[in-house]
Design a protein around this nucleic acid. Structure first.
Lengths: 151, 151
DNA sequence: CACAACTATATTGCGCACAACTTAATCGCG
DNA sequence: CGCGATTAAGTTGTGCGCAATATAGTTGTG
């Protein structure tokens, strides 16, 4: 590769590819850990937000938290509703809004996945401190890219 | 949030969400930078591999490099072929294989995107050293998750 | 040479992501 | 109040990712 015209285009030298590959590798782990719950990885993220909020959220509020739009969330929420984990009800006070709230079954699921973060951490091959440092760097990166997006 | 039952499930405390969000945020940047080439982000990655190899590659070889399977690559390669960036020819020596090679147009595209890594780096809001450190940590993570996958 | 095992690619089906657009409800201003 | 502007969610269409399966070609063994 020593003589190539544009060395900056080398796959392994760019940040983009490791990021892309890491996300897919981690997601695959989640799929395995979530087997038995019937949840996909994005569905698990939605459930995390609902468990954390512990109250009904609008589709927009969910979207802001996960940085997803209604085009992604609406069908995903319908699948979670069909699975019995949540309800989708129009807000009587503002019929434009849909309030997403957990069912008892959805709440009960939390206990079932409580071990997932620890299991994932154990299989990642990095120390807890490395994981935390990585998390913080990525959070910072996201924040910067998102604020710069508005400009 | 102080009283919640499973604090380890907090969205921001897990590595998974920042990783997922960062990948999508970076990918969106690429889409903008690749406007005008007609390439999507995964298509850009395929082109990077082909430019780097500078010879015909089989679908399997491409897949090993990008960690993608034929179910993803076959339709993607057909789109790149339809766009005129590459050719897909059966290997005469082994008719099971498909050799993917650049067209002149595909080779010419390299010059057009030569500035992309630098432009992306500039818009990421982190220093070059931070980006390199992040890249290395992610690469290590991927390597570990992949080797552990076989077990 | 026959034929089972293996390999390479393609196909199918599903679930995201996301852009662009539509529909319906609410708001705000004159 | 009337009505255009805004907001919220849903719909449509495209392109991944990936599991599962199908198809076709090759290899190894007797």
């Amino acid at each position: 590769m020593s003589g190539r015209t544009y060395p900056q285009l080398a796959l392994d030298l760019q940040l983009c590819f490791p990021l892309y590959a890491a996300t897919r590798a981690v997601t695959k782990r989640y799929v395995r850990l979530l087997e038995g719950t019937g949840l996909t990885y994005p569905q698990y993220l939605v459930m995390l937000v609902l468990w954390e909020a512990d109250e009904a959220l609008t589709v927009t509020a969910l979207g802001q938290r996960l940085r997803l739009d209604s085009g992604t969330l609406t069908p995903l929420l319908k699948r979670l509703e069909a699975a019995g984990h949540l309800r989708r009800d129009r807000d009587p006070g503002d019929e434009r809004r849909v309030l997403v709230s957990l069912t008892d079954q959805g709440r009960a699921l939390e206990e079932q996945v409580a071990g997932v973060p620890q299991q994932l951490g154990a299989s990642m091959g990095i120390t807890r401190d490395e994981a935390l440092a990585l998390r913080d760097q990525l959070t910072e990166l996201v924040d910067h890219l998102d604020t710069a997006d508005s400009a």
